[in-house]
């Protein structure tokens, strides 16, 4: 049936590019958008509910290149507010040692870049897989030379601290839906995307 739908919509290389036999549709309440899980990966498709499921469009995602201190990152264009915060926050690197008059450490470029990479990894993952643009965090320096990503919206708050511990970069986090509801606390390596954290971050839409 899906093969017929694909041909009807002019999708030629359907089977090659889309292993539809492994598709598990999960209907959302609206019936307008849906997610298909394909062998562990999530791909967003717009579908329309008629007598049968009809694929009408694959949503194109425009990507842009962001260059931060000579390092290039690819990111989805709709995340432009996050890109803007990243650009603004580069002034953190202008803070000298003792920037608070009380002995604060200078933020190292490597930690700042790792924080940017972490933020882009998660915000792009959530956008690509769940069609959610998370709220823009504030990127702040801490006195120990680490970086905070501080997220807040009406429903949720989340603080992620990117730091170096024993020569390894870690993200230590705490979040809840205010009043300690649905809390999440822990730490993850900064490399890659950990799905339990990404799923919780959907609350930041």
């Amino acid at each position: 049936m899906l093969e017929t739908i694909a041909k009807k919509n002019g999708i030629q290389s359907w089977e090659k590019s889309f292993p539809y036999k492994n598709i598990i549709p999960q209907r959302k309440k609206t019936g307008i958008e849906d997610f298909f899980q394909i062998e562990g990966y999530l791909t967003r498709q717009k579908i329309k509910q008629e007598s049968i499921l009809e694929i009408i469009e694959e949503k194109p995602i425009k990507e842009v290149q962001i260059t931060v201190l000579g390092t290039s990152f690819s990111s989805c264009a709709p995340l432009y507010k996050i890109h803007s915060e990243i650009k603004d926050s580069t002034q953190i690197l202008e803070l000298e040692e003792n920037w608070d008059d009380e002995g604060a450490k200078k933020v190292q470029e490597s930690i700042f870049i790792e924080a940017v990479k972490f933020l882009l990894n998660y915000s792009n993952f959530i956008y690509k897989n769940f069609d959610i643009i998370i709220s823009t965090p504030e990127i702040n320096p801490c006195i120990d030379g680490s970086i905070d990503l501080s997220f807040r919206n009406q429903n949720a708050r989340l603080l992620i601290n990117i730091q170096e511990e024993n020569e390894k970069l870690n993200a230590v986090f705490y979040g809840d839906l205010y009043d300690n509801k649905i809390p999440i606390k822990g730490n993850v390596p900064t490399k890659g995307v950990f799905e339990h954290l990404a799923h919780w971050m959907k609350n930041l839409s």
Binding site: G103, K105, E138, N140, P141, C142, I143, D144, S146, D148, S150, L159
Partner: peptide, 8 residues
């Protein structure tokens, strides 16, 4: 900000 409550 939360960073104002950090210690070394």
């Amino acid at each position: 900000s939360e960073s104002n409550f950090s210690i070394k």
